[in-house]
């Protein structure tokens, strides 16, 4: 891989939550990582190890206790249009139609209706959801909702797309379908993607680079490049070997 620009740089990031009993709880401890522009990074780790916390801080939704997140050269302290975030579920506005959901970010930015709809239409087509543009979220299946959520994040044209277990609530078949579609979108738009998952299989299928986390306190235990040629097949031995390796690493992390 050629030398690329670092687009997100996380340095010495720690986050402490205070529990109800007034004690403090270290959710993540001294996280350091660099995300290359246009790359696809996956973060895997046991549940509760602080994956969501890292993404939420990087998206500007939460403040770090110490340490910094930089987007290019700017410190991230509040949400900005350049960093998008896709949640696991229930993130669509239930009172808006699919197309209005996708256009929501542009609406917040004051873009006029015609232009909004044009952009929303383009992104709905990209995720194969144009036929459902007038439907409401409750009329869609879980997979369709996630497609719309991805289109909505992309319509804002962010540089970086953070995804917090975006396929975590889907059945196995839909999940694989959406992984393939996400790769197509990634190749088409060349966004920088950071995706959190607890599925090792998903991480190997998608990522250029995998970060393995350990818990209590949340920290990065290991990182590895995935050098399997794209489009990837799950049937090849390398895939299995890598799965075994990561699963072992995760066992130590528990």
């Amino acid at each position: 891989m050629t030398q690329q620009n670092v687009i997100i740089e996380i340095e010495k990031l720690s986050k402490e939550y205070s529990t109800e009993r007034g004690e403090s709880f270290l959710a993540i401890d001294n996280i350091n990582l660099k995300i290359q522009e246009n790359s696809f990074t996956c973060i895997v780790g046991p549940s509760g190890c602080g994956k969501s916390t890292i993404l939420r801080i990087a998206a500007g939704l939460e403040k770090a206790t110490s340490g910094t997140v930089h987007y290019r050269s700017d410190p991230v302290t509040k949400p900005c249009g350049e960093i998008g975030l896709v949640f696991q579920e229930y993130s669509l506005f239930p009172w808006l139609s699919v197309i209005d959901n996708v256009a929501a970010g542009l609406d917040f930015a004051g873009v006029e209706k015609e232009k909004r709809d044009e952009e929303a239409t383009r992104h709905l087509r990209m995720v194969n959801m144009l036929d459902f543009k007038d439907a409401y979220p409750h009329e869609l299946s879980g997979g369709m909702r996630q497609r719309v959520a991805i289109a909505r994040a992309l319509a804002n044209d962010p540089d970086v797309l953070l995804m917090d277990e975006p396929f975590g609530a889907l059945d196995a078949h839909t999940r694989i379908l959406l992984q393939q579609e996400l790769l197509k979108v990634w190749e088409l738009t060349r966004k920088t993607i950071v995706l959190v998952t607890h599925s090792v299989d998903e991480a190997i299928f998608l990522a250029d680079k995998i970060l393995i986390m350990a818990s209590r306190p949340g920290r990065i235990r290991n990182s590895l490049e995935v050098n399997i040629e794209r489009p990837r097949s799950r049937a090849i031995p390398e895939f299995g070997k890598m799965t075994d390796y990561i699963l072992k690493e995760l066992e130590y992390s528990m």
Partner: peptide, 13 residues
Amino acid sequence: NTTLIDSARVLGA
């Protein structure tokens, strides 16, 4: 659902 509010924030509201 706080995810709705967070979504709006991230989208620039």
